[in-house]
Nucleic acid binder design. Structure first.
Lengths: 290, 290
DNA sequence: GACATGTCTTTCATGATTGAAAAACATAGT
DNA sequence: ACTATGTTTTTCAATCATGAAAGACATGTC
């Protein structure tokens, strides 16, 4: 029997990722009708059900999950080829993944990472959409734990300190009013802290960490933030000492197979310099503001 | 810009492997016309020449070779998926690679490896077409050196001894008449031996080792053969002692990622038993013939 | 309970992709 | 020098895959 078309593999991956035909159709530039047909053919060829169909979308079956695992590895290589292609056309893309606050810092200092004259484009993605380096979904990442995968190379980029912050001159009126991220969206230790350790009640819940800063600025309460965020904001002040138990190191991580890519190296180096130049801020050593 | 179609990748691989449009068209079931078109599109999309075109066929450029390397890894995964598919349909295929003589032994004892009642098919390929385990072109292989790749698992399967053979009762008349494989086709030490060490002249050159046995049987001269081949043939006798310097171990090798495949395990085990049951013959301990 | 909104699925005309055949071309052998 | 055989490339008709729109259906909202 003829082999299954590789093109169906890619469509399958997108349907599995997007959780439905509509989403997959949009990102792949096809129509939902075609996507549905191709998935049907693939299941036919594979001789097993790959999805659980419902009016609300497609969910992977157990066997579908097994296939998904395999094909992700295939996609990783395809991504490598894709960037090799872009490289040849002098228009490469570096995908940088970071947490909410490092992303924020990068945005504030974009000119230190990527200027108009650089021959590459930058794709920033926050870690909520948990992209994986192993599958080459991103080229450079920032992690709070040292990676163990042998296929990754990492470089330590200093400590990160945390403290509670409130609007300046708000005195003790906000003492018990904590701002926090809803527990469903908690992905890091510092986000869990208000839930576990804060004595007072939690006044406002938000779904994105970024909103914490906006709320504190507005005087809605106090929240735990990285020191390099809180200390950099002139309208904020610390509501207590550094929370030592949250301090951790951070690493810049890249895929070792992409060692040869100049653009990745460039971004990685510049990011390293940016973090180093803010090392004192990251570590919570409150410098005198200019 | 839209990504390149994965289907083009597969076509590219086949053209690179077959060295032309015609060959690729046959194995992929397309017409030469479309294959040519798809390659053209791929080159367009990649923005670089991938092949050197000539009336005699397609040859990879340097950049084409780079792409070929990448895509081979992709194909390896696709092969894994393909056998997973076949497995689900209860009709799997085990690809076994071996040298000329082990292949011969397997053919003679096919019932010990794969019978009608087994739920899998066997693809035998001799090592001349140098298939690689790493790229999953074969599932089980026999090697004369212990593999170092960490992705492979190996199992020692005894020693292999060599000696010179001639037709029985041909006396000393054939003393200097060596039969050998032409130097271009020499892939193993025992094939090189007649060229380097034989005192006499080489009477007949053939391109395939298998022909050596036929020639010796016909009384055309003497040739170096594995003992398990020569000693098993009642019409042959040794023309000298074992050639100790050629003795080596052999290993059964499989891809460790296919550990879970029952059919591969079965073939591997049966092959192991077959080799073990002939261990004395392999080692050159001439047993009394029945 | 009606309704709005989001899905997947089906239908059918359109258009892109394909294959067969012929052409153009190089190579090897006589 | 010529022919035979292999290749790639072009041409054109026909098939096949595709998309738009409509249908069917569940889910959540008012």
């Amino acid at each position: 029997m003829k082999d299954m078309s590789w093109e169906s593999y890619r469509i399958f991956l997108e349907v599995a990722r997007q959780g439905g035909l509509t989403g997959a159709a949009q990102v792949s530039g096809l129509s939902p009708a075609t996507v549905g047909r191709r998935v049907l053919q693939l299941e036919e060829a594979m001789g097993r059900p790959l999805f659980l169909r419902s009016q609300t979308g497609y969910r992977l079956t157990g066997e579908g999950k097994a296939l998904f695992e395999q094909l992700q590895a295939m996609e990783a290589i395809a991504r490598g080829v894709e960037s090799w292609r872009q490289e040849g056309q002098g228009a490469s893309t570096v995908r940088l993944m970071a947490g909410t606050w490092v992303t924020w810092l990068v945005c504030e200092n974009m000119s230190a990472i990527c200027t108009e004259r650089d021959p590459f484009r930058l794709d920033l993605s926050v870690s909520e959409r948990r992209a994986t380096l192993a599958h080459r979904e991103v080229d450079v990442g920032i992690r709070a734990v040292e990676p163990v995968e042998p296929t990754l190379i990492s470089r330590p980029a200093g400590d990160v300190a945390y403290a509670a912050y409130r609007r300046k001159n708000s005195g003790e009126t906000l003492a018990g009013r904590w701002l926090a991220v809803s527990e469903d969206d908690v992905v890091s230790a510092y986000l869990r802290w208000p839930h576990e350790r804060a004595g007072g009640v939690i006044a406002v819940l938000v779904s994105r960490p970024r909103s914490l800063l906006d709320l504190v600025r507005a005087g809605a309460g106090q929240a735990v933030l990285p020191c390099f965020v809180g200390d950099l904001d002139p309208s904020l002040e610390r509501a207590g000492d550094e929370i030592r138990e949250l301090r951790h190191q951070q690493w810049i991580v890249a895929n070792s197979e992409d060692r040869h890519r100049r653009d990745i190296r460039t971004v990685s180096d510049r990011l390293f310099r940016l973090l180093k130049s803010h090392a004192d801020l990251f570590a919570g050593k409150r410098p005198s503001r200019t």
